[in-house]
Structure formats: C-alpha cells, structure tokens
Design a protein around this nucleic acid. Structure first.
Lengths: 347, 347
DNA sequence: TTGAAAGCGCTAACAT
DNA sequence: ATGTTAGCGCTTTCAA
C-alpha cells in the first residue's frame, strides 16, 4: 500500500532587501561606524541621545550585525562543535541538550556532527576547528578518534565527554565506567545469578573496555567464572545488534542466566532476542542495561540499568569547554560524575 | 547505590602555534597572496612549479585557510541550519542523517538546533541566518514557527521538511499526511475495528491537523462514528505522553478497540499504557503508529505503522535547499514522497 | 563622548 | 601566469 511520489509546483516570492551594513546605519544616524559598534555591543558609555538615535535607525532598518565581520575581527565564531558517535541514540541526544543549554546561555551555537554517518567525518569536522570556524569542541567519539585529535590539533580547544582517558591531558567529564559496571554485575551476583554474560559494544571506545574491566573484576570478586563465549561484542549500539547477539549466543550453546549490556539500546534488543528464543525475563535470564534512557520504562519488563546523569554530563562538558576557552593555559580538572544503579523488573 | 562525584586534576600541555595567515605563506613561498589563494582553491591555472612550491610551504607550516576571512569575502559560510523540534526522537535523527549526507557531499556543514529545548530558540537561531552565519536552513518546526519565519526573513533561504503548508510559498518535502492517516485508519476499519481512537500530538503542527483530518475522513468513509473522547492530544511525542493518554482515556470510560497514534513513540507508550490497564494488543486493542522507527520491531508485539522515508526526506530537503540557494529566484517544486503502511503484530 | 583609520584573512578584479 | 589592490563588515586603538 504505497502512495505515489508526486511533485507540486510552489511559487516563491522575491523580496530583495539589500543587506544593510554598519556603514549605512552610521550614515543615517549621522555618527561614525565606531559609535554604532559601541551601541550594538553596549560596551563603552555612549551618550544616551546618540544611543537612542542609533538604535532608532537600527530598528527602522532592521539591521543585524554581520557575524562574519565580527568573527573575523574578534577571531571567534561563537560556534561550538560537538562530535557524537550517533545521535540516533537517545543517550547522546540528551547529552547534546545539556550542552546546548549551556552554550546558548553563553551566547554560543552548537555545530553538531554525527561521526557515525560516514568515514572520516571526524577529519572533515575537525577542519572546522583549525579553520577557526568553531571556537572549541566537545568530543564524545571513541578514543581512537580522540587520539588523532590529540596529535593533530596542537592548541585547539576541546574537551572529552563520556569517552575519555583519565591519564591523558585533555579535560574530560564522565563517570567511573569500571566502577559502574562493577556495581551492576555485583548486584546480579548478589541476586544469585551465576552465569553472567557481557554484551559489549565497539571496543574502540575506552568506556567499553573500562566496563569490561569492571565486569571481570566483579566476577572475580564474587568468585564467579567468566562465562565462556559469554563476552559478546556488537559493532555498534543498535537494538538489532543486541538482538542478534543473543541469537548468536544461543546458537553457540552459551546459556547465561543474566546479561549485562553496556547500553540500554543493546539491552532492549537483547530482551527481544531472549523472547525470540522463548525465554522469560527475568525468570530465565536477568538483564541490566546502561544509561537509563526513557525507553527503559517502556519495555516489558521495565529495564534495570546503570543511570548516567546525561543532562549533567552535557552541561558539565560545555562548562569545561567554556572554562578552557577562557583560560587556555589554565590547568583543568577532569570531572567524574556519579552513576546510580536503578533496579526495575528485568532483574 | 551512588558513586561519589569527584574531581581529578589533569595537566594540560601548552603548544602555542601562532595562526599562520595566507600572507606568511605567500612570503615564504615568494609569491603573492593571490597566488596562494589560487592554489588552495585550485581555481585558475597555476604553473606547476609555483603550485608545488606553495603547497610545500603550506604543508610545512600546517596552514589552513581561515574560513572566517573567506566567508566574509565570499559572503557565504557553507553552514546549513537545521531546526528540529526534538532530536531525541529517532524519527528526526534519521532525517538529520539524510540532510547531513547531502550537505557534506556539497561541502557544507550542518548546524543543528533543537528548538524543543527552550523558548524562542527559534529566534536565536534564525539570527544565524540573518547574520549570514548560515547560508540556508531546513525547518522541521511547527507551522506556528514557520509562519514567523515567513514573515521575518525576507529573502533568506529556507525550506520546510515534513511539516509544511502545501499552499505556502516555501519549498517543501514531506508526505501526504492526510492520505497516510486515512490509509492507516481505513486498514483498521477493514479489520473489523469499530471504535478507533486517535492519539494525536501537538496541534501546532500542521501534520498533526492533517492526520486528524485523514482520521476523520477514514471513519466517515467506513461508516464509523468518531469515538467520543477518543481524540486525545498529547503535548509532545514522548513515550510517557502516549502512556498517560491511555490511562486518562480509560479513566474517563472511553473504550476503543483500536488506536491510531501519529507517532511511533506515542504508540509505543500507548502499548505500555494498555498493558497497565490489563489489556492485550492486538486482541483487545489494535495499535498503529507512524514513522517506522527501528524500535517498532523491538516491542512486543511489533508495532504496525505508517512508514515514512526518513532518510530520503532529509536527503530531499537538503537537495531542495541547495537548489534554492543556487537559484534563489527560481520556482521550486514542493515534493511529496511516498508512505507505506507496514503491518506487524500490533494489529 | 566620539571620530578617523587601521586591519582581521581572504578573494577577485584588473593589470601586467 | 602572477602580482597589485581594493575591499567584505566589523572592532578597536589612538586622537581629538
């Protein structure tokens, strides 16, 4: 049942209003461009009458300062680059919102780059920084990419968010991934689960390796053996990836009684996969996710998960970057935010 | 179980490499800035030896043309503004990917603006256009905002995507919303459903009104009465909104045997709400969503829906905008893409 | 308090 | 094929 694709003509009006520049405003107000500049930046004190006169002309002409001119002069674009691996993932979307709120409050706009969509998009977008088309960047991309940035960008301003190397020299904000994973797996063990599988994502991500470490640490602490074949890695963070991972796991004869997934999307996919093979959550298999996206409470049973303070991660990253841009030479602290294990019906 | 928030010191290296400009390159290569410009734009023919010499210096110095200077001169930023109501919604995320792919291929970058996040964000971001900090825009925002744009933006370049007024003078791409809704509801009726409720979103959106129209048309065509109290409007497109709408519906005694939701997110929330009140999908109540996001196949039962060609919507919007920017005076056709009713387990 | 003038980095006539 | 030169629109000394 497909509707035909069609084309419908649209008439388009032609209102050619020439861009007025600061010169024109100055002329009409009978002042110099310098004075107009002072007015629009309300920097130095301008005589009230003069100010009003200028403002009147500005209003009348509908004048807007051309950012390009200003940017060139002041050598800043007031644009912030944000590189996310995949903004289809609700987790990243919420972080970006946090970034955006701070940026806007500080008079910046956010240039968003989905680096998942294509090869070497990172390079392309990093050019923006070198070009000074963006004043700074927040990078949520995998460590492999961050390493390139580190080596290529000299004095360019950027900070890492969620994905970071604690021992590197780039300011960062994130959570203690190893500890968080440890907490989740320890909980599963405490509930009597013995064969706990790990559903991991792309190990180009440091967080992925960190969480795996936490997983193994927790197993050891609980006196459990790692499940042979129970350490599955999906290439991404898709629902379908989680689902197929489960299918594969069962096909290969591995039979966990619990699954710890490094993302809610993977976990939700896994729950579906478990249903496919006729198992019940949590009776047959318990599932714990990671992130605490809204969807967690929309699946049946509701998904237990490690909550990350998504919004605050974004907010903090943006603040860190601001700080860094204001004082490039200053030493910047890395920030570790708290996580929380949220228990719902899936465990 | 919360991990403490902590602060970790990070040392930050200081590599102060002064921004080299085109002048410095010219000097070192023993040519004029014009020649350097020619080389980096490989515009006019430059003598191979000269070119090589210049390129050598460029490479050696790690020089990058400053976009700001170029933008000011050429009066274009090669930035595209994309205004989305909510990029937490996977539907929009996929569209943005489509836009991004075209933009990148054409040498543009996408400036993304989530207009849901704050009041009057639209104004703020529209400044970017007036400032010429962006060369054009794609707007997915509600008609109410688009109207403001129409009245305020004179000759600025923008196109509408998904949300559009077929009778307006702004180029657009979208689907036939009324027809799509009609198809979905007609299908439900054909399956013997008699009390079909509408779960609608914010009616500031034209598409929302268009789909409601299609819903009513289909009911009439099927000889069905609109369900009193069965036309629910959620403020947004959240999962929880859909869920609560159902709770409210049942609380008020309305008992549909089918639900048509204008978005998959609402529909998925609704399915959860139905479970809350002890009903089975599709036996007690059939559910149809809209968009066909990936999640549709991750819920139980899988969600029937009206599929929109998300990626192609984004691609087409970007192409439309390109066309518009190249020939601002040309008449641009509105484009209607096809939709498709996808039947799964929820009906 | 205001104006004159230099110049941010680049491109594009125009000249050679 | 290359250089000279004049700005793009703005901010910011420096002088008045």
């Amino acid at each position: 049942m497909t509707c035909n694709t069609g084309v419908v003509p649209v008439h388009h009006g032609t209102s050619k209003e020439p861009d007025v520049s600061i010169i024109e405003i100055a002329r009409r107000a009978g002042v110099s461009t310098a004075t107009v500049s002072r007015v629009i930046n309300d920097s130095v004190v301008v005589r009230p009458e003069t100010r009003e006169r200028v403002q009147a002309v500005i209003a009348e002409m509908g004048y807007r300062a051309n950012f390009l001119g200003r940017s060139l002069r002041t050598a800043q674009s007031r644009l912030l680059l944000t590189m996310v691996p995949d903004f289809g993932n609700p987790f990243y979307a919420e972080i970006v919102r946090g970034i955006d709120s701070v940026a806007r409050a500080e008079g910046y706009h956010v240039l968003l780059c989905d680096t998942s969509s294509g090869m070497s998009a990172d390079r392309t977008y990093f050019e923006l920084l070198r070009n000074r088309q963006a004043d700074g960047a927040i990078c949520l991309d995998p460590d492999t990419i961050q390493q390139k940035l580190r080596s290529e960008t000299g004095e360019l301003c950027w900070v890492a968010c969620c994905e970071f190397d604690p021992d590197g020299d780039v300011p960062y904000v994130g959570i203690d991934n190893a500890k968080a994973a440890f907490d989740a797996v320890t909980y599963l063990a405490s509930r009597g689960r013995r064969r706990i599988a790990l559903l991991n994502s792309d190990e180009r991500f440091l967080y992925s390796r960190q969480r795996r470490q936490g997983y193994f640490d927790a197993l050891r602490a609980a006196g459990l053996e790692p499940l042979t074949g129970g350490d599955l890695t999906d290439h991404g963070l898709t629902y379908d990836g989680g689902r197929q991972a489960i299918t594969a796991m069962w096909a290969s004869g591995v039979r966990p009684d619990a699954i710890f997934a490094v993302s809610d999307t993977l976990a939700i996919g896994a729950m579906h996969g478990l249903r496919d093979v006729g198992l019940t959550v949590p009776d047959d298999v318990a599932v714990v996710g990671f992130d605490n996206i809204q969807l967690c409470t929309m699946v049946q049973p509701e998904l237990s998960t490690v909550a990350q303070p998504m919004h605050e991660l974004g907010v903090t990253a943006a603040k860190l970057l601001m700080q860094r841009m204001r004082q490039p030479e200053a030493e910047v602290d890395g920030v570790i935010l708290g996580h929380e294990l949220v228990i719902r019906g899936s465990t």
